[in-house]
Nucleic acid binder design. Structure first.
Lengths: 108, 108
DNA sequence: ATAATAATTCGACGATTGTCGAACAAAGGA
DNA sequence: TCCTTTGTTCGACAATCGTCGAATTATTAT
């Protein structure tokens, strides 16, 4: 019913997207969306309450990074990949970067 | 005299650098350093007090983005370009991105 | 109509942040 | 030695942030 407002791609700012991606939870969300395509908030596992999760989705939405559409009782969210790639090339690659897992190999 | 501590390159985190770059002042600082090489805090013009400017340099330093060395009464600061490029490829290109200046052209 | 599901909104809270002026410290030059 | 320059540190302050539980809305299923 309430139709989620999204900023135009041109409204995205560098400090804005940096800010949005400065929280580990939100990086995790974007990473999940990049890997999983369109997901409901429900389908992104986080160790925070649902209120907090909803907040993080809203922050990403307001920054212009994700697009949310209502479908039934769920909110399907996806990364605005093309627009981000056009405006901030390489940004999403950074998000996808593997965390430095300290594997137990002798030489890497 | 007091010898500025810097984190190892491996201590840099994605949320950490994003956080550090989420402030327009700090983006401006990094941009100036990328264009101007090694600069004293003094040589980066910002419309904030010197206390605040010192704070912003410290935040960038703690995030691992810049390296500061004492020279006389000045503190010469430079971007840790190679380490950042190795760990977060493309990050500095984002910082260098031109702000969307709305020029008055008819077609761009 | 009732219940269940999914998500948002509303305070509230402690923590962090950006900002400043004032005080301080270190180095260099008069 | 004293003064200037450069930068840091120290409260302090308002603003923002991340977090939560509880209440609310909206949709679907029974």
């Amino acid at each position: 019913m309430k139709p989620y407002t999204h900023p135009a791609a041109s409204e995205m700012t560098l400090p804005g997207v940096m800010q949005a991606l400065s929280d580990p939870c939100r990086i995790e969300i974007v990473r999940a969306l990049l890997n999983g395509g369109e997901l409901a908030c429900n389908e992104v596992e986080l160790k925070v309450s649902k209120a907090t999760k909803s907040h993080h989705f809203a922050v990403l939405r307001d920054a212009g990074l994700v697009l949310t559409r209502s479908e039934g009782t769920r909110c399907m969210t996806s990364v605005r990949r093309e627009e981000i790639d056009r405006r901030f090339p390489g940004l999403l690659d950074l998000v996808l970067m593997e965390k430095p897992k300290r594997t137990r190999r002798k030489a890497g």
